[in-house]
Every structure is written in C-alpha cells, then in structure tokens.
C-alpha cells in the first residue's frame, strides 16, 4: 500500500477514536484492526509487545479514573447500578468503571494503530509520505524537503547515538563515575562527562555525514528523483473509502444525526 494512504488512514483512525463512546464500536474497530494485522502478516506477538511499553501508563490511568471519578453522585449511581463505594477521597462507582474501561479501550487502540503503521512502513517511505502531504506548505515557502530529510537522517542516526551513549557511560563508569547517587543537581553534574563527549562525537558525526552527503551530490530537492515512486492503487482508494465510511458512521453515532437514535438503542441494548 502507498505510505501516504496509510498515513492518512492512521490519522483518520486516531481522530475517529475520540468520537467513539460505545464498547460495541470499540470491539468493531478492534476486529477491523485484527483483520489488518492478519493481512499484514506481522506476527501478533510483535504487535502486542508494543503494548508492554505503555502498560504501566494504561494501568495507572485506569486506576486514577476509577478512584477519582465520583460518577453522578451517590444516589444517582445507586439508582442506576445498585452500588457505590467510597473511602475518604477515593470513590469506586459504576460510571467510573465504565469510563475507565472506555479509556483503556481507546488508549489500547490508539497505540496499536500507529504501531501497525511503523511495522509495515519503512522510515524513508514515511518521510516521503510526510513530505508529499505537506507539499501545500511549500507554497508558503516552508522548506518541506529539508524537514523530511532531517527526519530521515535523525531516524537513521538514532541506533548509532544510543550505542555511543552506552559506550561513553560505560567508559566513565569504569573510571569510577556513578550516575545514580546524590540529589538531582549532583546527578545532572555527573552527566557532564557523558554529554560533552557525546556532543563532540555528534558534531564529528554530522561533519562526516555532511561531507559524505556532499560527495554523493546532494543539493536539496532540486532535480531530485525517487527510487520508490509513490503511487495510489485501487487498494489504497478502497481502504481510504472504507475509512471515510467508518468515520462517517462514528460521527453519525456521536452527534446523533438525522435522529438515528434507534442505532443507539440497539447498541446500548
């Protein structure tokens, strides 16, 4: 698929999630996402691993939402769900649980969607897509190509920089430096022996890189071609059409257009 289509769909997907208010719809989107994962042939466990990184955040927000949400007040809650519990400033109630559940669904889907984008699209394809989609900004003299180039280079330099940081930290540790003692000021000062060499080597790196790029005839966007030409295919149009339809459906539910209240009734039931 074309990276521009994927990028647009992902953006639409993220916006869309903020308009969803029903578990059934979350489930529907989750099923769609599963289909996408299946079609992309990315192993499911790899996708699920991306959740691990945000798991703590998820649990944390979930608990906060539950204990600090007081629902519609004790009486209304009991009337609706039949129970209400509170200790001091903490309250657990039916509305809070519902809200927390929805939040979890929303966050999970929010993480998984873009994850699929990064799993199936190379950084260069993505920056190409960004560059293309930002083309209108060129008319107001924004150097879009330069931004895209910077992004692409930054992405390719990250692994090297991480490695470099570990190396320098190890070297200073071997000289008796410690990075986890003392108050915040001491710790910040202890980082100087890491940051300075890191800056020095980064400057050297960027000098070298600039020479290498010049040597390979880099002159900005002027006269530049691309090996991978971006091309919308039928599948891209179909996918985008489907996304628009889904988005429309969700907005319809959210704003209750044309009195489609009956759908609400079915969904809630």
């Amino acid at each position: 698929m074309d990276p521009r289509a994927k990028l647009l769909i992902t953006i639409a997907y993220i916006v869309m999630l903020f308009f969803v208010d029903y578990f059934v719809v979350y489930a529907f989107i989750a099923v769609l996402l599963l289909v996408v994962i299946f079609l992309s042939k990315v192993p499911l466990h790899k996708v699920l691993r991306s959740i691990k990184a945000v798991l703590f955040l998820l649990i944390f927000t979930f608990i906060l939402t539950i204990v600090f949400n007081q629902g519609q007040g004790e009486e209304a809650e009991i009337a609706k769900f039949g129970w209400y519990a509170h200790w001091g400033i903490f309250t657990v109630c039916g509305s809070g649980l519902l809200l927390g559940g929805k939040l979890i669904c929303r966050l999970l889907l929010l993480v998984l969607g873009p994850t699929m984008l990064t799993f199936t699209t190379t950084p260069v394809a993505l920056t190409d897509a960004v560059e293309y989609l930002l083309t209108p900004l060129k008319w107001v003299k924004v150097p879009v190509h330069a931004f895209a180039m910077i992004m692409s280079i930054a992405l390719s330099l990250i692994p090297g920089l991480m490695e470099e940081t570990t190396k320098i930290m190890n070297a200073q540790k071997a000289r008796g430096a410690s990075f986890d003692h003392g108050n915040i000021f001491k710790r910040a000062a202890a980082l100087l022996p890491v940051l300075i060499p890191l800056f020095v080597s980064s400057f050297k790196r960027s000098d070298d890189l600039a020479d290498a790029m010049d040597s390979r005839c880099y002159r900005g966007a002027k006269g530049r071609t691309k090996m991978k030409v971006l091309k919308f295919r039928l599948i891209d149009y179909l996918a985008m059409l489907l996304t628009v339809a889904l988005f429309f459906f969700i907005l319809m539910l959210f704003y209750n257009w044309w009195g489609f209240a009956w759908i609400n009734i079915i969904l809630v039931a």
Binding site: A174, R175, G176, A177, P197
Partner: peptide
C-alpha cells in the same frame, strides 16, 4: 572499579574536561 582499570576501544571519545590535568584527575 578501583582495582580494575578498563581502556575501551577509541578511548579518546571519553575525554570531556577543560584541561588534560582535569581529565586525567577524573
């Protein structure tokens, strides 16, 4: 760390201080 001294590959990349004296004193 006191008893085992370790000189890594390209150790010059660990230099950071203003003067040679300060760096060696680290």
């Amino acid at each position: 760390r006191e008893k085992v001294g370790m000189v890594f590959q390209y150790p010059e990349y660990q230099l950071f201080a203003d003067t040679v004296r300060q760096d060696v004193a680290f």
